[in-house]
Amino acid sequence: MFLQQLLNGIALGSTYALVAIGYSLVFGVLRIINFANGSLYMLGAYLVFVLYSAMNGQLVLAILFALLATAAAGFLVDFVGLRKLRRDNAPRMSGLISTMGIATIIENVIQIWIGTETKQFPDFLNFGSFQIGSAIVTSTQICIFFISLFLMAAFSLLVYKTKIGKAMRAVSQNMTTARLMGINVKLVISGTFMVSGFLAAVAGTMVGAYYRAIDTLMSSSVGMKTFAAAVLGGVGSLPGAMVGGLLVGVAESIGGSYISSGYRDAIAFAILILVLLIKPSGIFGKKIVEKM
């Protein structure tokens, strides 16, 4: 039982980690929380569903297009909702409300367009299952874990080893200086949003495959949970987002089965509040000192 829940939690947690990376990347660069990130996760899954039906089962192509389209949507979140606010030097709270508005728009467009009923999702990662002790592990879980791990490793390499990553980190430390150094700040910001959209879409697609179904409620709780994961790990920290994602996934899975399944979702929120109150910088985050 415990082992089973632990394995379930790791699989789920690794998808949280992917979405949490998106929150962290954006927060690192802009110091704002992109509330639309959770709805991009849902958008990604729905686009796979729609394209898969429309393209007569061309699954690989459908997924590819969906991921790219969600990345583009990520770019649009910034372009529509945030670029002007940056130019106006608006308070950060405006960015929060604006991205929350975009999240509401995305979710409702999907609801109106596709409907609120649960849709069946292609079960494309299912190649069977095997047993470890008393626990059953499905191939879907294994795929989710390794795809997430691969993407996390790839993005760590991107951020820490490449020129683009260097530019990204420079922008997150000081935007003005980065601009003066000749870094195309706009491009870096757009890139960050596209990456976070892409990762969210991958996570959404994998979770769709995991449950073999998607519905329009999938984004609201995941948005909060993955955000909790990002905060737990330390917003702005890439390894923090990964560890935070796994921890929230495991805590939710184990807590949900041992305490009460009704309070399953509350666990992530409780973690979120406790971290903010006790150590707002999270596990890996740096402390931000406010100046007088």
Binding site: I97, M100, T104, N108
Partner: peptide, 14 residues
């Protein structure tokens, strides 16, 4: 209704 709320949030902020 909710779609309109979302649009209002974004537009007002901008």
């Amino acid at each position: 209704r909710m779609l309109i709320y979302g649009v209002i949030m974004v537009v007002m902020m901008l």
